[in-house]
Amino acid sequence: MRKNILLGLLLVVVMAGTAQASEGWSAFKSRFMTPEGRIVDTGNNNVSHTEGQGYGMLMAVAWNDRASFTTLWNWTQQNLKNNANGLFYWRYIPNATPHVSDKNDASDGNVLIAWALLKAGEKWHVDAWLQASDAIQRAIVEHDVTRYAGYTVMLPGAQGFNKNSYVVLNPSYFLFSAWRDFARRSHLQVWDKLINDGMTLLENMRFGDSGLPVDWVALNAGGTLAPAAGWPPRFSYDAVRIPLNLYAYDASSLRLVPFQRFWMQFPRLQTPAWIDVLNNNKAPYNMNGGLLAVRDLTLGDTRQINGILSDNQDYYSASLQLLTLMALRGM
């Protein structure tokens, strides 16, 4: 009898967690997805970008929402596809003419879209989506991946990040789980090289007293690394995704330790949102929402992680919160 009661309670807890997660995706859609399939970045003048489209497509697969996935993918193809190189324009500005003025891509957005198509094609047995993913993967390798200073790296975009004497990297774009799936699908060694070299680079991106990476990093021709000129030398809103990506790839990775050490210094609700790794100045405000969810995941405080979005969360915070839940559940 006692065993049956415990099993019943466990089932109730699991069902409640599943319901919360579904409610989170429903809230995300109602708040940030237009009927046409555009994900709106409410914290950034309501623009859309490939990052948001990719996140939305991945969430739709995770929550078994084929209709939303189809709508998201159709809008992305119609409005952001660069037919000249097979990649995607990184940003769409709804109140501008033309809506796409910057013809560059963002490699993380390309990867997220290709990854979502791969997952969707396998889940729902749609060969056209698998073929579309394969084509985007090939375009990423051709235009966004390069060999530099002895490393195979994915540049943040096809244009503007190779400065000859150094290249600019965004380590939050190191999407190890996606690269692993691409390697499984294509059997191309380039994806394994990206994983291995990306892990090595992260090991060496330990700047200042905090020992943390920054949002934008310069890889010099000699192989040394430094915070990239032109951006604040902060572990901030981009780089916070690094431990999320590491956890999703390997929840027991020792590369999570620098982030754990830093965040453990602070009470949970008094954790600064960013730190300047060179002068140790910290944000005058604390983590909340999705940022806090990434902290909780990294520190193993999984009781705090749920799919309930607060009323004041913007697109990015809500995205991080649901992505954290997906990483925790292996979705």
Rank of each mutant, 00 (worst) to 15 (best):
Y249G: 01
T152Y: 07
W274R: 11
A149V: 01
F182D: 06
S177H: 10
L188F: 11
P156L: 09
V111T: 09
R295E: 06
P213V: 02
G330I: 00
L87H: 03
P213K: 13
Q189Y: 04
R180C: 10
N281D: 06
T224F: 07
Q313L: 08
M331L: 15
W124Q: 12
G330W: 01
W25H: 13
T146N: 09
V294D: 05
D65A: 09
R185Y: 11
S252D: 08
R329N: 14
P267K: 15
N110Y: 03
H49R: 14
L278E: 14
K3I: 04
T146R: 15
G289Y: 00
T50M: 09
D250C: 05
D314H: 10
N312L: 10
G330R: 10
V217I: 06
R184T: 06
W73K: 10
V167G: 07
A251P: 04
D209P: 02
Q265I: 03
R180D: 13
V167R: 12
R185A: 14
A96Q: 15
S133K: 08
A221I: 01
F235T: 00
N170I: 01
D134E: 13
L9S: 08
E23V: 06
N79T: 01
A251Q: 13
A84D: 13
W179E: 04
F176K: 14
A228N: 05
S107F: 02
L225P: 00
N104S: 11
V167Q: 06
R138H: 14
A21C: 05
N162T: 00
L118N: 07
Q159R: 15
Y89I: 00
P258L: 11
Q189H: 11
D105S: 09
G56Q: 06
L7W: 05
K123Q: 12
T224N: 14
A248L: 09
V214L: 02
T152F: 07
M264H: 13
G330L: 02
W179A: 02
Y148K: 14
H143T: 03
W274D: 11
K193L: 04
P227R: 14
K282Q: 12
W179P: 00
G222N: 15
G52T: 00
T18N: 15
E203R: 14
Y237L: 10
N279K: 07
Q304I: 02
Y89C: 03
D311Y: 05
